[in-house]
């Protein structure tokens, strides 16, 4: 479809290598932390832009976040997205996935789309929740964790790896598809495009603009507290004869690390 309107849902997250530290109040310290587009979302952005380049169409990105997200939105715009939509209200600072999904679904009524792409999960909360809820709210079909995507006419053909094997799925548009690693290798934006991105439009909506109110948004989950695991302190060296060491290692992998 030459005029395919692709909407990509993106979330700004910490870089994946960021060290997570808690302050005295048990909140995550964000001082000195670099923000990026959540990597799976970035695969989605890249795929969308590749489709835009191959067959025309237009890529918009949508995020829920404060003006601190502007920098990462600019990255998506520099990669080639045509415009960005940002929804924000201070009450969303602590929004859970359900509220985020509600806000996105409401905002999507203001943005035309034929295809919705998102990352399979955000790398911070890893909940796999928002795209599924958005699909449910808007009555759209959903396919998670796709590794390839092609559109012909009004049908998308996707592939994905599941525990059962490699599935090929056909789904009519509009649909919500989420990206797995491998869908597309995100490009490194070129400098002229970085410059141009500074001038691309970023539409900002408040809750009122999309027909919602803070009072109507009820949380589903409450975070009671955060903790961080004890830092790795080098390997526990398992001694003894090879027989003893191997037995002990397997026991600890099974009972302590729970990886067997």
């Amino acid at each position: 479809m030459a005029d395919l309107k692709i909407l990509v849902l993106v979330k700004q997250t910490f870089t994946t290598e960021a060290r997570i530290q808690l302050d005295a109040q048990g909140k995550i310290v964000d001082k000195g932390i670099k923000y990026v587009i959540s990597p799976y979302d970035e695969y989605a952005v890249e795929k969308a832009i590749q489709m835009q380049e191959a067959g025309g169409g237009i890529v918009r990105i949508l995020t829920v976040g404060s003006d601190k997200t502007l920098e990462t939105m600019r990255i998506a715009l520099a990669m080639g997205a045509a415009e960005a939509v940002r929804v924000w209200d201070p009450c969303l600072e602590t929004a859970d996935s359900q509220i985020t999904a509600q806000v996105i679904a409401a905002a999507m009524k203001k943005v035309p789309f034929d295809l919705v792409l998102a990352g399979k999960a955000a790398v911070d909360d890893q909940s796999y929740e928002v795209p599924a809820r958005v699909a449910g709210l808007l009555g759209l079909p959903l396919v998670n964790a796709i590794t390839s995507l092609s559109v012909s006419g009004t049908t998308a053909k996707v592939e994905r790896e599941t525990d059962a094997g490699k599935e090929t799925i056909e789904v009519p548009l509009p649909a919500v598809l989420t990206a797995e690693k491998g869908l597309a290798e995100p490009r490194y934006p070129t400098l002229p495009n970085i410059m141009k991105a500074k001038k691309k439009p970023v539409q900002v909506y408040g809750l009122g603009d999309i027909g919602l109110s803070a009072a109507a948004l009820k949380p589903a989950v409450q975070v009671l507290g955060l903790s961080t695991p004890a830092p790795r302190k080098g390997a526990a060296i398992i001694g003894g004869s090879p027989q003893e060491a191997v037995k002990e290692l397997v026991r600890r992998l099974k009972e302590e690390a729970k990886v067997l």
């Binding site: 911070d124 009820k218 989950v221 409450q222 955060l226």
Partner: peptide, 13 residues
């Protein structure tokens, strides 16, 4: 959360 770099204690409402 954060790939295991933090643990969140949560309760459904």
């Amino acid at each position: 959360i954060y790939a295991g770099k933090a643990m969140a204690k949560v309760k459904p409402l």
